[in-house]
Design a protein around this nucleic acid. Structure first.
Length: 862
RNA sequence: GCGAGAGUGGCGGAACUGGUAGACGCACUGGACUUAGGAUCCAGCUCUGGCGACAGAAUGGGAGUUCAAGUCUCCCCUCUCGCACCA
């Protein structure tokens, strides 16, 4: 018998063999069905963490499984290599972002290889390489030509710490998603992608993504945020101009008593100019529009405003409405102007109460009349129209249509749809990103870089500046350029770089032909591999990355470059990896090694008892991280993989448990020992191949269990990705096999055991590939277990000839009995009624009803 | 506030279309083997009562539908995540 299970030697051995033989390389093969399995590529931050390990383990199991099922599987890996952490690290370590990035890629790649993942490394890409981003620049030019990329001056979210603009998607509760600094508003000229043109299409297709988690689809829909309503014009008094508002409640227009403009609204300054209000308005606008978004977005943020001194006219009621500027009106949504209906909108109500503005009820609820004087909150529900002229007495839902009809007839308004989604701002005042291929010429204005000049290569000799400011504008050669249109020598190159989400919006297409140099990708390769059949990654990308990728795919489709509109057919969002935290009153969070074990556990530094905190997402700040490297050293890749899959189903969060890891290791040792216990016996045997009837009574149950397990594991992996139950099924089989004595030997036994153990190895091979490969070869197979076919179950083995029937009385379990397959209902009734235990419960009572479920259960109602 | 998801033993988690609740694993308890074991093997392990056969209760709480509910319907509670002054 071979020595004990030693993962270290077998894992490095087989990893080497796999690499040398090019086992994971794939090519387009029209004869085989394709399967594109993609995991979200990592940012090369330094080393891989347990989240990566989990994500990529799940993906690797599916990739290996699909290969064994006969698919031509594309399973690539690469690096989302541009981005701010590289710059920050470069500044603090006095190195160059490129160097830092490539060194990280190197370490992380080694780690991934140690995990035994089956990537086709020939297809590796790094987005910071010119041969990658040059095509992104190329597409940018195409988009610019078609007006899909444009420049506009606008208020943008500005992070002072990062010295850059943030997309709305990168602002979380008013703070920068990266550093947590409060986000301010700043006026800048920026490049945008016109994603709002596709808002409707992106929204509609949300319902055609059956392979996506409901949750993600809902998040996308909410993010796009479509509202149906109307745009209505309000004539400004003494001025030949109108204010256009967007409202979802045109039915309440008769109740609109004042107007609120966003502080950033262009009319605000103009209306108050040279009035007594000008100073107040200016001060207010200055304060609010530049005010930190974090406070502006807070729940208890008080509604405030200032009268502009101007009035407008309600087009339906004719009422003279004071025009305010208010902090709750947002320039980015609708038209930046709100017709305020205090009786029926909570914000307007609060505002009106604060400033003593009139409240007019126009929708009366069924329960009784509302009195503006005593109302404590706005009424937003349905009801009958009042104080609305000819519309009085109409249900408000009807009035909504009627009033818009009237406004449309008078050309004072129209039906419209408004989206929450805004255009995608892609400009970053950052160094470590793909340069935007544009030129600013004093004569010609904005001039695109000629296609032949691509790529615009990011200069490597730039020194990063204090505070993270981009060095590109100061770079001696980069910014200076000749105008390609008029030849002027003093034109300037655009020094903004692109948002890194642009790179990650098409990397999956690049994987199809990573070395192609005549375009973004080889259309033939993309036609073969795309769309991605299964995409796997964290929920944190449920909105940003997935929405941008969907949009970018539409752009490519509009250009006729790809034949599909949705890039990802199925999506799996895996849960977080969590662990309990340890906390000391004095020293805060502690690493396990800073704790003395005992009852209770105490802090090594101060001896205070350590509180075992909540189970939280692994993070350095909480000191509850587990380093994959340490795990690989102690247990090996197979145990690590097994534990990640066994501890929880993939979409749920995974609670780390050191004992659980021990358990996983123990199981692998058990499998190893079991196989070696039988190795002598089965090495020269042929796996039993049926029919089942030939088997003795001893071996038949083994054969049956083997096939039941094949079915269970196949279904669990195929339909649901429930690897935890798949593994437990194999554990059951292994437990059963441990009960089969090696002595006395027989050729039947050897052949059934060969089948059983080969099955165990095949079923586990996507999960713990190294161990399985080792035993597989030991059994005499010349080729890798990866090239073996996935086992198929024998239907005959699943059929039971005897069934355990549960006997219930009044729905309560009272007894059990075994019967032959297909025993007639009549017989079952008789058997059940005469059962001794059942008799006890039905004695002296009248049997009212008997329900029989074939081969399963009988319920006697008395 | 709006939206989504989840509440099952000491713990992680099973239970596919309503049909034996607690598979599998961890922890724990007992035993075997051993110089020894924190290795391995065997057994037990939801709670309550009972030596026991057995009986009763139990899937966050409450009602309902059904011969039968962890699963379906309604109400309530708690937790997690996402969005959040969106007119």
């Amino acid at each position: 018998m071979k020595e004990k299970y030693d993962p270290k030697s077998i894992e490095s051995h087989w990893q080497e063999v796999w690499e040398r033989s090019g086992l994971f390389a794939v090519h387009e093969d029209p004869k085989k069905p394709k399967y594109y399995l993609l995991e979200m590529f990592p940012y090369p931050s330094g080393k891989i963490h347990m989240g990566h390990v989990r994500n990529y383990t799940i993906g690797d199991v599916v990739a290996r499984y699909k290969r064994m099922k006969g698919f031509n599987v594309l399973h690539p890996m690469g690096w989302d290599a541009f981005g701010m952490p590289a710059e920050n690290a470069a500044i603090s370590n006095n190195t160059h972002p490129a160097r830092w990035t490539y060194e990280n890629i190197d370490t992380m790649k080694k780690q991934l290889k140690r995990m035994g993942f089956s990537y086709d490394w020939d297809r590796e890409i790094a987005t910071c390489k010119p041969e990658y981003y040059r095509w992104e620049q190329w597409l940018f030019l195409k988009m610019y030509e078609k007006g899909m990329a444009y420049r506009k001056e606008s208020y943008v979210n500005w992070c002072e710490t990062c010295q850059t603009v943030l997309a709305n998607e990168q602002v979380e509760a008013g703070a920068c998603w990266r550093c947590g600094e409060a986000v301010r508003q700043k006026k800048l000229s920026q490049w945008f992608f016109r994603i709002t043109d596709d808002a409707e299409d992106l929204l509609v297709h949300c319902d055609r993504l059956p392979g996506w988690p409901e949750k993600v689809v809902t998040m996308q829909k909410n993010w796009i945020g479509r509202s149906h309503g109307a745009e209505i014009q309000f004539q400004i008094e003494n001025l030949d101009e109108t204010i256009v508002v967007f409202t979802t409640r045109p039915d309440t227009i008769f109740g609109a008593t004042f107007m609120c403009l966003a502080p950033e609204h262009p009319l605000v300054q103009r209306l108050s100019r040279n009035t007594a209000q000008q100073a107040d308005v200016d001060a207010f606008v200055d304060r609010v529009s530049l005010q930190e978004r974090s406070t502006r977005g807070l729940e208890r943020y008080e509604k405030e405003g200032v009268f502009t001194g101007a009035y407008c006219v309600n087009p339906m009621s004719g009422r003279r409405m004071p025009i305010y500027t208010a902090n709750f009106a947002l320039m980015e949504y609708g038209t930046g102007a709100v017709m305020s209906v205090p009786a029926h909108d909570q914000r307007d109500f609060e505002f009106a109460r604060k400033y003593g503005l009139e409240i007019v009820v126009v929708v009366q609820p069924e329960g009784g009349p509302l009195d503006p004087a005593t109302m404590t909150e706005a009424y937003a529900g349905e009801g009958m129209m009042v104080h609305s002229g000819e519309f009085d007495g109409m249900p408000n839902t009807e009035a909504m249509q009627a009033i818009v009809d009237r406004l449309e007839a008078r050309k004072m308004g129209k039906r419209t749809v408004s989206y929450r989604l805004r255009d995608w701002g892609i400009s970053r005042q950052r160094y470590w990103g793909a340069p935007i291929p544009m030129i600013h010429c004093p004569t010609c204005g904005i001039v695109p870089v000629p296609e032949s000049d691509l790529p615009i290569v990011l200069p490597e000799d730039a020194d990063l500046l204090e505070g993270g400011k981009s060095p590109l504008p100061q770079h001696p050669d980069f910014a200076k350029v000749k105008c390609p249109a008029c030849g002027r020598e003093d034109a300037r190159r655009e020094t903004d770089t692109m948002d890194t989400f642009v790179e990650s919006s098409w990397y999956f297409e690049r994987y199809c032909s990573p070395h192609y140099d005549k375009g973004m990708f080889d259309p033939k390769a993309v036609a073969y591999w795309m769309p991605v059949d299964q995409y796997i990654g964290g929920v944190e990308h449920a909105i940003l990355h997935l929405l941008y990728s969907r949009y970018y795919t539409r752009v490519l489709n509009d250009f006729g470059m790809v034949p599909y509109r949705e890039p990802f057919t199925r999506l799996l969002t895996q849960g977080m990896v969590c662990k309990e935290t340890l906390h000391c009153e004095e020293h805060g969070f502690l690493y396990p090694e800073e704790v003395v074990d005992g009852q209770p556990r105490t802090c090594k530094k101060c001896g205070r008892p350590v509180e075992i905190g909540r189970v939280e997402k692994m993070s350095k700040s909480k000191k509850n991280v587990v380093d994959p490297n340490a795990l690989l050293d102690a247990y090996g890749a197979d145990t690590t993989r097994l534990f990640c899959l066994f501890a929880a189903p993939p979409e749920r969060s995974l609670e780390w448990s050191d004992q659980g890891v021990d358990g996983a290791f123990r199981f692998l040792t058990r499998v190893w020992r079991l196989c070696w216990m039988w190795m002598e016996e089965i090495r020269s045997a042929t796996a039993f191949d049926g029919p089942m009837d030939r088997l003795s009574a001893d071996m038949k149950p083994v054969y049956q269990k083997v096939h039941v397990t094949i079915q269970k594991v196949t279904n669990d992996i195929e339909d649901r990705f429930h690897f935890n139950t798949a593994i437990s099924a194999v554990m059951e089989l292994v437990n059963l096999l441990y009960g089969v004595p090696v002595e006395p030997t027989s050729s039947e036994k050897a052949s059934v055991m060969r089948l059983a153990l080969e099955t165990v190895v095949l079923l586990l091979s996507p999960i713990v590939p190294h161990l399985c490969e080792d035993i597989w070869r030991e059994l005499g197979h010349k080729d890798s277990v990866l090239l073996a076919s996935w086992p198929v179950w024998d239907e005959a083995a699943l059929r039971k000839d005897r069934h355990l029937i549960v006997i219930q009385v009044n729905g309560k379990l009272r007894s059990r009995m075994e019967v032959e397959d297909d025993t007639e209902e009549k017989v079952i009734r008789e058997l059940a009624l005469s059962d001794e235990k059942v008799q006890k419960f039905i004695a002296g009572k009248a049997v009212r009803q008997i329900v029989v479920v074939k081969n399963k259960l009988i319920n006697i109602v008395v």
